[in-house]
């Protein structure tokens, strides 16, 4: 999905005179990894330990405190039912992570074996049937596919995860298949083959570990993408059901208050940006480490 972002650092004639760049190089190289990693940890901590970070309940309504602005008691104000927005954002992170990690798992569990097998054996089935089905799935706008699936399966966290996960399968099949094609003719595989290694062992013990890093990058980016898709489904009312907090459904409600209480729309959006940015940076960081290793 994202091509090589960092390139390699092998000697280039700088168009400018040499400058002192002690440490900078190193920090920049790892900036994405560290900052992204920290942001992701924040999101995951918020999702896992939401109740510990707030005195409020995400669903307890308080009709005498609706639509309040920013205050010490409510850092991000309250919503139309008097619930603390910051609390709902924390619990929204939980919903978001449940859906996106669930969908990425589904994509991996189904997509990776298919990718391994099809890349390893290739042949007419792979070329004429499987890859064409994958093409067909990818030719359909991802969000619409998720929308149709969610409408078919009914709303809810589990079904949203399934709907998005099905959309991920082709991406993982392609990633893994591409890596397998690249790796399978390399010397170490040939060597293992010579020693009489069985195909299944070859795939699991030798091929799989070598495609782990690109797979990890892909998972990170898929989660970044999934957060936005989950929010879109939530916005359309197809993800977590009320009263469960979800960033997308918070945005849906906020739209009715755009002119009077814009904070209701701004806060969940910023939460989405934070989470997506974190995963994207982490993905970038992993990617550049991968490139370094390959050089």
């Amino acid at each position: 999905m994202h091509p090589n972002e960092t390139g390699s650092v092998v000697g280039i004639v700088s168009p400018q005179p040499l400058r002192v760049r002690i440490g900078w190089e190193d920090i920049r190289k790892r900036f994405s990894l560290y900052v992204g990693g920290v942001m992701v940890v924040f999101v995951l901590l918020g999702a896992l330990f939401a109740p510990f970070f707030t005195p409020y309940s995400p669903i307890q309504q308080n009709y005498s405190a609706v639509l309040q602005g920013v205050s010490m008691a409510h850092w991000l104000g309250t919503d139309n039912l008097g619930r603390d927005t910051f609390t709902r954002l924390l619990f929204g992170a939980r919903t978001s992570m449940e859906v996106t990690i669930g969908s990425a798992l589904l994509g991996v569990v189904v997509g990776v074996p298919i990718g391994l097998l099809s890349g390893f054996y290739q042949g007419w089935f792979d070329d004429l049937i499987l890859m064409r089905i994958i093409d067909a799935l990818q030719a359909f706008p991802f969000l619409i596919l998720a929308l149709v699936l969610a409408a078919m399966l009914g709303p809810g966290i589990r079904n949203a995860a399934i709907a998005i996960g099905i959309g991920y399968i082709p991406i993982f099949v392609r990633t893994v298949r591409g890596q397998v094609l690249k790796e399978k003719n390399k010397e170490y595989i040939e060597a293992a083959r010579m020693t009489g290694c069985r195909s299944s062992r070859l795939m699991i013990v030798h091929l799989l570990p070598n495609i782990m890093t690109p797979l990890l990058v892909q998972i990170t980016l898929a989660i970044a993408n999934g957060i936005v898709t989950e929010a879109s489904l939530g916005y359309l009312g197809l993800s977590a059901q009320p009263p469960t907090a979800s960033w997308g459904s918070m945005l849906q409600v906020a739209q009715g208050y755009i002119s009077t209480d814009p904070l209701m729309a701004i806060a969940p959006g910023l939460a989405i940006v934070f989470a997506v940015l974190g995963f994207n940076l982490l993905g970038d960081g992993l990617q550049s480490r991968l490139n370094k290793r390959q050089v």
Binding site: I59, Q60, P155
Partner: peptide
Amino acid sequence: ANDPVTTQVDQIMQS
């Protein structure tokens, strides 16, 4: 249904 007003009414009834 899942329009904004219904969503509020649902949750108020629920509580």
